[in-house]
């Protein structure tokens, strides 16, 4: 049995501790907001927060998360009103939308650690998140906007 705390909810899973967190979330728990994109930590679609860090759940064994706090896109904010989610909607960032949960989860760690990120900071934080539709400019703008929203609150 592996005990997980996901989005402030406790789970006990009877699964192989080597199963990547991604598949435990998606196939076992049914939280499908976290996406599979590459399986080798290259694309960032699977980013979740593990104790506040933007880990790639596709290579993170569920055993690493045992007893720790995991936050997925579904739990980033109670009402989908995290400054990043607000900014994403305000600037209508998404095209296909598949990568955006991972983008937002990566950006959330950036904003937590740097209240006023520069373009360069955004590049450094986000370079691991691929968007095949090419919404990078809007993501950059949205992170700036989210920082402004966050600082105002």
């Amino acid at each position: 049995m592996i005990k997980l705390n996901i989005n402030n909810k406790d789970y006990e899973l009877d699964i192989d501790p080597n199963m990547p967190l991604l598949w435990a979330l998606r196939d076992v728990i049914g939280l499908v907001g976290t996406k599979y994109g590459c399986g080798v930590a290259q694309c960032g679609a699977c980013v979740v927060h593990l104790n506040g860090e933007a880990v790639r759940s596709c290579v993170t064994k569920v055993s690493r998360a045992a007893g720790q706090s995991v936050v997925t896109i579904e739990g980033l904010s109670p009402n989908h009103d995290h400054p990043l989610q607000q900014a994403w909607l305000e600037l209508d960032v998404s095209q296909c939308g598949y990568c955006q949960a991972g983008q937002i989860m990566s950006a959330a760690v950036l904003l937590k650690e740097n209240k006023n990120p520069t373009d360069r900071d955004i590049e450094l934080a986000m370079e691991g998140n691929i968007c095949r539709c090419g919404t990078y400019l809007r993501i950059r703008k949205a992170i700036h906007l989210a920082a402004a929203i966050q600082n105002k609150d």
Binding site: G33, G97, A101
Partner: peptide, 29 residues
């Protein structure tokens, strides 16, 4: 006149929208 993506909120909150998110009871992979 620019209108916002009607599925924008579902996208940013991780709702099951995509094919890979489709689930059914008893489904195998």
């Amino acid at each position: 006149h620019s209108q916002k993506n009607v599925e924008g909120e579902k996208v940013v909150s991780g709702k099951p929208l995509f094919g890979l998110d489709y689930r059914q009871e008893g489904m195998l992979y």
